[in-house]
């Protein structure tokens, strides 16, 4: 067993990293914040997959590499495997984690902002709060998406990764392999 730190170290570092980029540096440019956060994840995934595959033979095909991400790689990071893997056999893979750890720790506070509008515009304000909440949650997903993309790129597979949280607390990562 290697060295460990408390989970709160990683959680608070991630929360702070996202807030630094999304709320402080690029508050008005969410696409830029997203790109930076994804890029930090990419570096981490690239390095981790380098370390975790050091003593392994090369993967024969894409599916083998994806299975490695679902099992070994995910277990190293989250102490559990991906719960469900689907593919259309044409380069798209959907990895579902039924209870994605990094989302269960982020409670998106739905209480209305005290400075926000109230009364007659309540509906509008609720909608915008929900919208904001969705945007905040999605900011936190660029990091794990980046990790998966970095890990696969290190295995020689270039791809695009996105996340779907319409089924919380489950989270699905959609990997589209570039041909």
């Amino acid at each position: 067993m290697g060295r460990e730190v408390s989970e709160s170290c990683v959680d608070s570092l991630l929360i702070e990293m996202v807030s630094t980029y999304a709320d402080r540096f690029y508050a008005s440019k969410p696409e830029l914040a997203a790109r930076r956060i994804e890029s930090i994840g990419y570096q981490v995934g690239h390095q981790l997959s380098e370390r975790y595959t050091m003593d392994r033979p090369r993967f024969g095909d894409h599916l083998e590499a994806i299975k490695f991400i679902c099992k070994d790689f995910w277990s190293e990071i989250f102490k559990k495997q991906i719960d469900n893997l689907k593919t259309n056999h044409r380069g798209t893979f959907v990895l579902q984690d039924n209870r994605f750890r990094w989302l269960s720790h982020i409670s998106v506070d739905p209480s209305p902002d005290s400075s926000g509008p109230s009364g007659a515009s309540q509906d509008a304000s609720e909608a915008s709060v929900e919208n904001k909440a969705a945007q905040a949650a999605s900011m936190h997903l660029y990091f794990p998406c980046g990790i998966i993309r970095g890990a696969l790129t290190n295995l020689g597979i270039s791809c695009a990764v996105s996340a779907d949280i319409s089924n919380l607390p489950a989270c699905s990562f959609v990997i589209r392999i570039k041909v």
Partner: peptide
């Protein structure tokens, strides 16, 4: 307290911190 806490692989923490520092230097 540490023994009973939820713990994670320190590599993830260390590499994440390193990637943040590197990104900050770039930006």
């Amino acid at each position: 307290i540490f023994a009973s806490a939820e713990r994670v692989n320190a590599e993830l923490f260390t590499l994440t911190y390193g990637a943040i520092v590197r990104q900050l230097i770039t930006d």
